[in-house]
Structure formats: structure tokens, C-alpha cells
């Protein structure tokens, strides 16, 4: 942490706020993964971490390295863009897969059900 000693007050405070805020939002999303009851509710939970959580931590990183290097460091934008454009694809396929599996399960194939449906 010796590099952070020469950081002035404002960037340090901003970095700290965005960092803790982003981490807290991500934790709330993951807690939702734990507490929500059905799959279709749980699938909403990670989007908290992938939108605001990622954005806040990436912004914190941008502020920190920009202040440290005294020049704009913007490449964390790539992570925000990447995460925001890729999460919909994954979740969309996953929900469709869940729908197909639910449907095929209610139609038949009872032998696999016993193992899968453990609460």
C-alpha cells in the first residue's frame, strides 16, 4: 500500500466509496441467490452484481489508477461493456434451458426427478 500514500484526499475518498458500494451491491445480489425461493426468482439476483456492482468497482479502479498515474486510465470501461453485453445472452439461454427442462420433466422422464428435486 505504499503507492497509495501520495494519493490526494478526493480520489481516495471516491475510490473507497465506489469500492465498498460496489462490493456491497454485489454481496446483496449474491445473498439474493441464497435467499430467494425458486429458480426463476434466483436468476434475477446476479444481475445486481453484473450491472451496478461491476460498474461501481470499475469506476473505483478508474479513479484510483487515474489519480495514481496522473493521466486518465479508462480501460476498465471494456469490462463494463463486456459484462453488460454478455450477461443477457447467458441468462437468456439459461432461462430457455430451464423452461425446456421443466417442460420435459412434467411430460415424463420421472426417473431423473428423484435426484434433481432435492430441496
Amino acid at each position: 500500500m505504499n503507492a497509495a500514500d501520495e494519493l490526494s484526499a478526493l480520489p481516495a475518498v471516491l475510490t473507497a466509496v465506489f469500492l465498498v458500494g460496489g462490493a456491497a451491491i454485489t454481496l446483496i445480489g449474491s445473498l439474493g441467490l441464497l435467499t430467494l425461493r425458486s429458480f426463476y426468482e434466483r436468476v434475477h439476483a446476479p444481475t445486481l452484481g453484473t450491472t451496478l456492482g461491476t460498474a461501481c468497482i470499475a469506476i473505483a479502479s478508474m479513479i484510483y489508477f487515474s489519480a495514481l498515474g496522473t493521466r486518465p486510465v479508462l480501460h476498465e470501461l471494456l469490462i463494463i461493456v463486456l459484462i453488460i453485453t454478455t450477461t443477457p445472452i447467458g441468462l437468456m439461454i439459461l432461462v430457455n434451458a430451464a423452461l425446456v427442462r421443466d417442460k420435459s420433466e412434467s411430460d415424463g422422464a420421472p426417473q431423473r426427478k428423484a435426484k434433481d428435486e432435492h430441496p
Partner: peptide, 15 residues
């Protein structure tokens, strides 16, 4: 409990 729950968990884990 089901495979899709595990995949959602994995998605969240890597993020």
C-alpha cells in the same frame, strides 16, 4: 437443487 441453479451460481461466482 437443479442443474440450472448451479449454472446461475457459477455465473455469479465468476463475476
Amino acid at each position: 437443487p437443479r442443474a440450472q441453479d448451479r449454472v446461475v451460481g457459477f455465473d455469479s461466482l465468476y463475476v
